[in-house]
Amino acid sequence: MTVLFVNGAKMDLDVEPDTPLLWALRENAGLTGTKYGCGIGECGACTVHIDGQAVRSCTATVGDAAGRTITTIEGLAQKGALHRVQQAWIDFDVPQCGYCQSGMIMAVAALLAEKPQPTDEEIDAAIDNICRCGTFQQVREAIHAAAKA
């Protein structure tokens, strides 16, 4: 049994400590909003927050995350109100297939927490998630809109 603190809840999970956090979240905690795209830290589909930092959960283990505060896409909205990044994503109709967007949104939320008004260069440097549908121009617009919100 491993104890994780996810989205404000304490979870006892039957999972080995060397299991990637991604799979513990998806399969043991039942939080399927966090997606598997590559499993090697390349694509960012699995991005979650650990202690507020954007982390690719496929390359973090359950052991790494134990005792720390984990937030997934399911926990981003607070008290029923969407996070401003989610709202911007809706306003700008960002998702196509949407599969990469949980990770994209989590990465952007972490960026804005650190840099409330990022420049295009800062966005370029921070957001390197893969989106095979190619939603980048809506992503950029929505980031700027969220920054202003």
């Binding site: 039942g30 939080l31 399927t32 909003g33 966090t34 997606k35 598997y36 997934t72 896409i73 399911e74 981003l76 909205a77 969407l82 989610q86 994503w89 809706i90 109709d93 960002v94 998702p95 949407g98 599969y99 967007q101 949980s102 949104i105």
Partner: peptide, 21 residues
């Protein structure tokens, strides 16, 4: 018009094949 399927794609609720349980 906006897509009909966006909100669930921003909250993690959309169920893809990989999420079927």
């Amino acid at each position: 018009v906006k897509r009909l399927d966006t909100i669930d794609k921003t909250t993690g609720k959309m169920i893809y094949g990989v999420d079927v349980t």
